[in-house]
């Protein structure tokens, strides 16, 4: 056993100028290749010898992919290279997708947010990926480009397991699209950490729509409490059609805690995660109600 001092040898480094070119490189190098954009995950994994790709495809210089765009019809569009910082600084994200803003401002350090991308965060498919919960609640679609062409996948079908997505070996995320939210909607993201900068012990995201005092749509997502970031569908069902009184909120919170499959790891315990999931869900629901626009 030894603790490595350096990144394993990389034989080839490519800097494609378009996504299509990157996809072609991916297709020709297969499993030997890894995509580099922000580097915050890949370089760390290589450093710890958890990954030793022979070939690195650096997509960070592909032009015009760092965008965060919004229009009423199409909603929010996040380019493949949109950084967490770009989201953090976006007024439209802060004002219209407050849960996404809240998730981003508590991810890593400001320096890290400068390097890390949203696409990288979801492609890593960590159960604790903080942008995943908000995107699940916002029912985002992930637009992929591969050698077979383009396709889109609902984010709710994107995660396949810890560290696994439905991305094929020759596919890349080209864009993440987030629909606009109907009037009467509020959202919230809450996260518990060990210290002020940390991965989530548990995170809860919620997007609720209310009309005439009743909940017409409810979406709740939970992070770090199962093999993938997940939607708490039964808890959502408790809320839809209900007036959001204390009893309904408590029932939804309890239901959410039953839907998760938490484990004990270095960050927290199974019991704690279960217990605070209810607390966070309940708090997130109340915040949504207060914040609805």
């Amino acid at each position: 056993m030894f603790f490595p001092s350096t990144i394993p040898r990389i034989d080839q480094y490519y800097r494609p100028e378009s996504l299509e070119e990157a996809v072609a490189l991916l297709a020709s190098h297969g499993k030997e290749a890894r995509v580099l954009s922000g580097g915050t995950d890949l370089v760390t994994l290589m450093r710890n010898h958890a990954l030793a790709p022979r070939c690195v495809i650096d997509i960070s210089r592909i032009g015009d992919l760092g965008y965060v765009r919004f229009d009423e019809a199409g909603g929010l569009r996040l380019g493949a290279l949109a950084t967490l910082k770009a989201l953090e600084q976006s007024t439209v994200v802060r004002e219209r997708y407050s849960l996404l803003h809240e998730a981003v401002v508590h991810m890593g350090s400001p320096t890290m947010r400068n390097q890390a991308t949203v696409a990288g965060n979801i492609c890593r498919a960590s159960p604790a990926a903080d942008t995943a919960g908000p995107l699940l609640c916002l029912e985002a679609t992930v637009h992929l480009v591969g050698s077979g062409g383009r396709r889109s996948v609902p984010i709710t079908e994107f995660f396949a397991g810890p560290g696994k997505t439905v991305l094929a070996a020759d596919e890349l995320v080209a864009e993440v699209r987030v629909p606009t939210l109907p009037p009467g909607t509020g959202s919230a993201f809450l996260k518990l950490m060990r210290v002020a900068e940390d991965l989530a012990k548990v995170s809860a995201s919620a997007v609720l729509t209310l009309r005439d005092g009743r909940c017409t749509d409810a979406r709740i997502a939970l992070g770090a409490v199962g093999p993938t970031p997940l939607r708490a569908r039964r808890a959502e069902a408790v809320l839809v059609g209900a007036s959001l009184d204390d009893r309904a909120i408590a029932l939804a919170a309890e239901t959410a805690a039953e839907e998760i499959r938490p484990i004990t790891d270095l960050r927290s315990t199974r019991e704690y995660r279960r217990q605070v999931t209810s607390v966070l869900v309940s708090r997130a629901i109340r915040l949504c109600v207060d914040r609805r626009q």
């Binding site: 603790f3 060990r194 210290v195 002020a196 900068e197 940390d198 270095l266 960050r267």
Partner: peptide
């Protein structure tokens, strides 16, 4: 917050880095 975690079988340190050995921050 600070606590080293040892593997129960091998005695290896499971959190030998700032990633999982948490020290207090400015905030």
């Amino acid at each position: 917050t600070e606590d080293m975690v040892f593997d129960e079988q091998t005695g290896r340190v499971l959190n030998p880095s700032f990633l999982d050995y948490k020290v207090l921050t400015t905030v």
